[in-house]
């Protein structure tokens, strides 16, 4: 962000921008201090993002990063509907440990959902099916009528999940919507190495990650090892 750009903005626009950047009490600051704080906030945010990202993601940012200034948005975008009048619940896999669920109500179910919510009887039922032994179970997450999304932890690996949006009535459960199904593919390196006729160092060579990271505890029991070398990793070629 260039100082020139910020100096061209009105004080009220600067205050809006400072609030968007999480600067505390911007209205109490002098104009020049406010501008410096906004520049610092943008720079801090930029560096944080780069530090957290793996090489591939950094390279993708760079092709869009042609701006000397971050785009400032002081206007609202065009209005589009926030719901589409359909009872619906969807589940998306974020990573092997987490899913994103969103839902909405159609006209026919909105009233009943609102009533159930008042009595704490509106919920998401998370169904889990173990793909190795086909055993099934579920757990419930109470929700409020005003809510329309949740991030949920997926407790088990190798399972299929789907969600039901449910009103609990005295006469029984009423399913308002049923989601698509997803599979949580979590598998850990120890499982691979122990279940197959391959030793750990051979595995690392064949995975192209030999010498990528120091296997500090030697357990190799966490798939997030993948995360560590994808994200950072001081790399040297294997001998």
């Amino acid at each position: 962000m260039t100082k020139n750009r910020l100096q061209s903005l009105s004080l009220s626009d600067l205050i809006t921008l400072a609030q968007q950047q999480g600067i505390i009490n911007p209205a109490d600051m002098e104009r020049e201090d406010l501008i410096d704080s906004i520049i610092d906030a943008f720079e801090e945010s930029r560096l944080e993002k780069l530090e957290d990202d793996n090489w591939t993601i950094q390279s993708m940012y760079r092709k869009f990063d042609i701006f000397q200034d971050e785009e400032i948005s002081l206007e609202k975008v065009a209005e589009i509907p926030d719901h589409f009048n359909a009872s619906k619940v969807e589940i998306l896999l974020v990573n092997p440990l987490m899913a994103f669920v969103f839902w909405e109500y159609g006209d026919s179910s909105r009233d009943i959902a609102q009533k159930c919510s008042r009595h704490n009887n509106l919920l998401l039922r998370v169904h889990e099916k173990n793909l190795s032994d086909n055993s099934e179970s579920f757990f419930d997450i109470p929700i409020k009528f005003e809510e329309n999304k949740w991030y949920i932890n997926l407790p088990s690996n190798g399972c299929q999940y789907y969600i039901e949006l449910i009103c609990q009535l005295t006469t029984g459960d009423k399913v308002l919507a049923t989601s698509n199904k997803i599979e949580s593919p979590l598998k850990i390196t120890r499982d691979i190495v122990s279940s197959e006729s391959i030793n750990r160092s051979d595995f690392l060579v064949l995975a192209g990650v030999y010498g990528f990271y120091d296997d500090e505890d030697g357990s190799g029991d966490n798939s997030q090892k993948i995360v560590s070398f994808l994200n950072t990793g001081s790399i040297r070629e294997g001998e």
Binding site: N54, T56, F84, E90, N95, F100, K149, E183, K187, N231
Partner: peptide, 29 residues
Amino acid sequence: LSFSSCGNGGYSGDWLNGTNDWIYRHIYS
């Protein structure tokens, strides 16, 4: 093969997180 991507952590967090999750209800609808 297993679910995967080139994103941070190897999965989908770059395309689905608190900043951008609002778009999916529109796209699917």
